[in-house]
């Protein structure tokens, strides 16, 4: 029914690593702030820092939309480019992390980041600011996976346990998606298609054309007919 999304052609035996991405669906986010709370609790984020926040544009007006935003784990991360001590690194999964043992807390990443992801912790003595803190995609830091030290410095390492970031996992409306960028964008593209851009693109019949409320659009992308299940 719909064309198969573009898949990069792989050579024989070649594997591509997943590139982890967040995506927030503005048509679904209801500004409940559960992602913010979940993140703070799961990672025991320092006082004064919120690794994730929900921002509402045009609050109370027509066209009001909410977006949950955190580190977007850029491919060409500005924070990494401007860091004077080069403490940022990208994991094999495409997650941008920083090493708090090397970070000097200068705040340059805070100036450069478009999303306001790296933040100063609340002031220590004499207004000094300590090491920066940012979203880790629930992937911890450079220390040994799930060690006490890693947990103390960076919070949870759910990726090492085979889980996705808690903010997205527990999003009630599934507005916030996290995972392999290809999969996330497939899900979102499918949603947009089914929501439809025309005036007819809403209602029960459009959302569940076969009366199957648990249909998984991802399976249909293999090229099978949508109603074939």
């Amino acid at each position: 029914m719909f064309p198969v999304p573009h898949q990069p052609r792989l050579k024989e035996g070649e594997q591509i690593m997943a590139r982890m991405k967040f995506l927030c669906d503005t048509e679904r986010c209801i500004e409940c702030n559960a992602c913010v709370t979940a993140c703070k609790n799961e990672n025991e984020v320092p006082w004064g820092v919120n690794r994730r926040r929900v921002v509402t544009i045009n609050d109370g007006q027509p066209g009001e939309r909410s977006l949950s935003v955190a580190c977007m784990h850029c491919s060409d991360a500005p924070c990494a480019a401007v860091c004077p001590v080069d403490c940022f690194y990208t994991t094999d999964d495409g997650v941008v992390l920083h090493d708090k043992d090397i970070c000097i807390g200068c705040g340059y990443c805070f100036y450069a980041c478009p999303f306001g992801a790296p933040q100063f912790p609340s002031g220590a003595a004499f207004g000094s600011r300590g090491k920066m803190d940012k979203c880790t995609f629930c992937a911890g830091g450079p220390e040994e996976d799930n060690s006490a030290e890693e947990r103390h410095k960076y919070g949870s390492n759910r990726l090492a346990e085979g889980k996705l970031p808690l903010c997205a996992e527990m999003c009630a409306t599934k507005a916030l998606l996290a995972g392999d960028g290809d999969v996330v964008s497939d899900i979102y593209r499918d949603r947009v298609t089914w929501r439809g851009a025309s005036g007819l693109g809403s209602g029960w019949g459009i959302a569940y054309p076969d009366g199957d409320q648990t249909r998984r659009r991802g399976r249909d992308l293999d090229g099978k007919a949508a109603g074939g299940e």
């Binding site: 702030n33 913010v36 004064g48 820092v49 919120n50 926040r53 929900v54 921002v55 509402t56 544009i57 045009n58 609050d59 977006l67 935003v69 478009p114 999303f115 306001g116 933040q119």
Partner: peptide
């Protein structure tokens, strides 16, 4: 935008 989160420029998405 509006946000429940405090902090510098928290209401700015990009």
């Amino acid at each position: 935008g509006q946000t429940q989160v405090g902090g510098v420029d928290a209401g700015i998405l990009i």
